[in-house]
Design a protein around this nucleic acid. Structure first.
Lengths: 109, 109
DNA sequence: GCAAGATACCTTGTATAACAAGGCATCTTC
DNA sequence: GAAGATGCCTTGTTATACAAGGTATCTTGC
């Protein structure tokens, strides 16, 4: 379906926004945990989308990371946390987002 | 500002969606008229964004066109109109859009 | 102790839309 | 007939979503 391409385009930027919002709501989360929570909210992305995004956000200092090598059980995990700068960016994104949602309604005028 | 890049990404797909919605609300519109109406709704795009988008939508048969060579006054205009296929696509896009808006709220659960 | 599977993170390559900048054609005004 | 307004279009760049595939660590069963 052609719509799948449009869908993928629509999600550019949106996925980043969602991720920041999610991390604002939690003290810290690790990769696959983030994936699961986004999927639960209906934002179905894969690891190939998530990890490059996380890396970029860390590079841009919107997120902070922390390795947890010695798990009680299981593979080591890399935890992510939103930074102060990330919080500010998120606030600006939120207002842009609200603006888009409003625009869709304003078309009808 | 770094946000401007994010903003441009966020708008991918969104601009297309807005344009189809706008054309569903009007019998027919020409290029610069579309531009003006989108801008009024707060969707600020330029011609370099609009015309390639219009061409693509025509190519994909979501829009129909009609040249109006002999204006009462002024430059000839190319009018755009949403097709039946465009209407169906828009309906599916609308439900995807609602889903995204809902997802943002569902993150808080 | 070691093979199989689960968990977790990461990289590479591709496709595509938004955008800036610039160009061209037609019509009006003076 | 020059200047400006109106209108449409093209080219080149950049950045992100995504699929597919890869690597490392830990647990379980035998």
């Amino acid at each position: 379906m052609e719509l799948s391409n449009w869908r993928s385009q629509l999600r550019k930027g949106f996925v980043e926004f969602s991720l920041l919002r999610l991390l604002r709501l939690h003290e810290r989360l690790y990769g696959l945990e983030i994936l699961e929570r986004l999927n639960l909210a209906g934002i179905e992305i894969g690891e190939g989308t998530l990890y490059p995004l996380l890396s970029r956000l860390v590079r841009d200092k919107l997120l902070l990371t922390q390795w947890e090598i010695k798990q009680a059980s299981g593979h080591p995990r890399k935890y992510y946390k939103i930074s102060a700068k990330g919080g500010e960016t998120l606030a600006r994104m939120s207002s842009e987002w609200e603006s888009l949602v409003r625009s869709i309604k304003d078309l009808e005028k």
